[in-house]
Design a binder for these strands. Structure first.
Length: 452
DNA sequence: TCTGGGGTCCTAGGACCC
DNA sequence: TCTGGGGTCCTAGGACCC
């Protein structure tokens, strides 16, 4: 917690719906619901006119239609939201270099970096009003709610207190008085499951939370969350505003109007999704080692299966093969309502960079000869199959080879075998890592069926 | 024919290594 | 022929956020 109220949190009001009303004047003043419009859709954003009828985010669109049949139901135009968001973020970055976007419609701004003459309440209030006016101007009339306080935690709570189109500055020294009477659910990270656990322990308000020992909180909700709650209940929060947070994963998923039962169709879907993930990875200059599929069964049971490669990839065929192989191992006979593919373990370098760094000599430069024991850490360049991703220091090789994969492992030795997504692994062969035969090895590809 | 899509973070168990 | 402790990586699931 800082001595001054110098953390600002900005939240655009009913953002997606507000963009639609801005761009389509006939929708202004009327209930607008943005979200999935199909039979299994949910509400993403409801305009304030729709909220009057009890329509809320995350509600099924079916229920929203029952509550407010005359609303306009729109599936959303994310390009418009992205470009509008970019204008808002530009306004914020113009005020302070330290801006942390949380989503398209939310961001923290560190006012201690804004170059203000001081951080008194009157000064930051004037800046906040200026920001709100500039956001309105830059976006063609969108309103924002702003909170300013001595920490991220309190700034976020403050921006929620006077929605929509509100501004709340929590004066330093008054934080606990404001916080104590509030319900624990105002604390970010406290959702339905945590509310229920705390309720059973007789805890409803922040004031009651403050009376629980740290050990007891850890027992109730786990180590990380328990320690976090113990601090937040005392308004203790020193988390810095962080610009440029790195992407950790990229994923694509889809829920289908009717449960899927056809394995071939599912296979085709994850192949397409893998392609979309790869495209987005490439457009961001990213690649990742772990491929995950997500499968939601007919009964809403959700399964994740993942597999980690020895080196990052952004190759659609590699991601698709792995995703299909993971799908093969699941029993989907009861029907599948959702399928998804994701890549995590991201690096901002890709295979080619790794390769370039390890050298491309035709003859691996190794200090060992054939009759010396293999070194613990092989120093020669990796095997050079097409798209190979093995390099010195790595203990597994993974490479694309013709119509299948080569897998192998070892320290000083490399064990290789050939497989495709559709066939079991072929015979195993072992080479010393510096054996030139490794370079010449070819899979028994003629025996392998072609990939679909 | 309840229950999206894109994310982040945490927990827990097992494998493996030293 | 008994039995460690710590650290890291991987996998699976769950809570939560917008």
């Amino acid at each position: 917690m800082r001595a001054h109220a110098s953390v600002l949190h900005l939240d655009l009001d009913a953002f997606f719906a507000a963009v639609e009303q801005r761009d389509k004047p006939s929708l202004r003043g009327k209930p607008v619901v943005v979200g999935g419009v199909g039979g299994r859709g949910v509400v993403s954003t409801a305009s304030y006119e729709a909220r009057v009828y009890g329509v809320r985010s995350a509600m099924s669109t079916r229920e929203a239609r029952a509550r407010c049949p005359h609303a306009a139901y729109l599936s959303g135009r994310f390009e418009a939201y992205r470009s509008t968001s970019a204008k808002v973020m530009a306004v914020l970055r113009d005020c302070s270099p330290l801006v942390e976007p949380l989503s398209l419609d939310e961001a923290f701004v560190d006012l201690a970096q804004a170059g203000l003459p001081d951080l008194e309440v009157a000064t930051v209030t004037a800046l906040a009003e200026e920001i709100r006016a500039r956001v309105r101007e830059a976006t063609g009339g969108l309103t924002a709610s702003v909170g300013i306080a001595s920490s991220k935690f309190l700034a976020k709570i403050a921006s929620d207190l006077r929605k929509p189109d509100g501004l709340v500055v929590i004066e330093p020294g008054t934080e606990l008085a404001l916080l104590r009477p509030l319900h624990v659910s105002v604390i970010p990270g406290v959702g339905p499951a945590t509310v229920e656990r705390l309720r059973r322990a007789g805890v409803h308000t922040v004031e009651e939370l403050e009376r629980v020992s740290q050990d007891e909180l850890v027992r109730l909700v786990g180590k990380a969350q328990g320690q976090g709650l113990f601090q937040l209940a005392r308004a203790e929060d020193d988390r810095p505003v962080v610009a440029d947070r790195e992407t950790k994963s990229v994923s694509v998923e889809g829920t289908y109007e009717h449960d899927l039962t056809d394995r071939l169709q599912m296979s085709a879907i994850v192949t397409r999704q893998a392609g979309e993930v790869a495209k987005r990875l490439r457009s961001s200059g990213l690649s990742g080692r772990t491929v995950t599929i997500k499968v939601r069964l007919y009964d809403f049971t959700t399964l994740n299966r993942s597999s980690t490669l020895p080196a990052p990839t952004d190759d659609p065929a590699t991601i698709a093969r792995l995703a299909r192989a993971l799908l093969e191992d699941l029993d989907t006979s009861g029907g599948v309502r959702l399928l998804g593919v994701g890549v995590s373990g991201l690096a901002d370098w890709i295979q080619e960079d790794l390769f370039a760094a390890t050298g491309e000599d035709d003859t691996p430069d190794t200090g060992t000869t054939a009759d010396e024991p293999a070194p613990e850490e092989p120093e020669q360049a990796g095997a050079r199959w097409r798209n190979a991703t093995w390099a010195p220091g790595m203990d597994v090789v993974h490479a694309e080879h013709g119509r299948g994969w080569v897998w192998g492992s070892g320290k000083g030795v490399v064990t290789v075998r050939f497989e495709t997504a559709e066939t079991p692994p072929g015979p195993v062969r072992t080479f010393r890592a510096d054996d030139p035969g490794l370079e010449r090895w070819r899979p028994p590809s003629e025996e392998q069926p072609a990939e679909q």
